[in-house]
């Protein structure tokens, strides 16, 4: 069974087509990099999978379940159990690192309240932020913020993680380091990764399959 399956998916905004008739399958545990120039629809595709946009036509399946078809979402984003790292990271400025992770677990129906502290400790260790649990996003460096966003996306153990150019604003050295971190976490947790980037180098590094969108 594929983790993600798109069939003839089309999406337009105000009459302008962002994604045209895309058919794509991504296997469980696979790493797919979506590369291409700005405006080619990479982010739209990611948001369609997440459920943040509704396809005008076509169908989307997540782990075999039909989640969207022809102009309507059958499963809302909050019920798709997907992890996502946003381009601007979307860290909640009023919450601590711990608060971010606790928030996700609180709404994850599979997680037990008693397991939350240990799960948070575990993921913080995994992203090497064990000593930063009480910090708020404004008190963290760029790299640390990136890792909080990663931890938030991964803590509920999703089978699919979507990343929308999360490293685009970082300097090359830090970007390279975090690419290594992402690969390490993928190897540990084996989720299906869809990574959007406009950098060919990043795409080649992170994708076991690279899809160029035009």
């Amino acid at each position: 069974m594929n983790a993600i399956e798109l069939r003839a998916v089309t999406k337009a905004y105000d009459g302008r087509t962002a994604v045209a008739d895309i058919t794509l399958s991504i296997e469980r545990g696979e790493r797919v990099a979506l590369a291409g120039p700005s405006g080619c629809g990479k982010t739209t595709l990611l948001r369609l999978v997440a459920g943040l946009e509704v396809p005008d036509s076509g169908t989307i399946r997540i782990n075999g379940t039909l989640v969207a078809e022809h102009g309507r979402n059958l499963v809302e984003p909050e019920q798709r159990h997907i992890g996502m790292v946003f381009q601007d990271l979307a860290l909640w400025p009023h919450m601590t690192v711990h608060g971010h992770l606790d928030f996700v677990l609180r709404y994850d129906k599979r997680s037990q309240p008693a397991d939350r502290p240990s799960r948070i400790r575990e993921i913080l260790e995994m992203v090497r932020l064990s000593d930063r649990g009480r910090a708020k996003p404004g008190e963290l460096s760029g790299g640390e913020q990136q890792r909080v966003a990663l931890a938030r996306a991964l803590i509920a153990k999703p089978t699919i993680v979507l990343m929308d150019e999360p490293l685009s604003s970082l300097d090359p050295e830090l970007s390279l380091h975090l690419r290594g971190e992402i690969l390490r976490l993928h190897a540990e947790l084996s989720f299906a990764l869809v990574y959007v980037t406009h950098s060919r180098e990043e795409a080649a590094d992170l994708g076991s399959r690279v899809i160029h969108m035009l």
Partner: peptide, 29 residues
């Protein structure tokens, strides 16, 4: 309040009123 803040909470599984209560209102307080 960037829309992505609410979307991140939505992806995390929070229902709408919880997103309003825990994310949108505190950030826009």
């Amino acid at each position: 309040v960037p829309q992505s803040l609410e979307e991140a909470a939505q992806i995390a599984g929070a229902p709408w009123l919880a997103r309003i209560r825990h994310i949108v209102v505190p950030v826009g307080l």
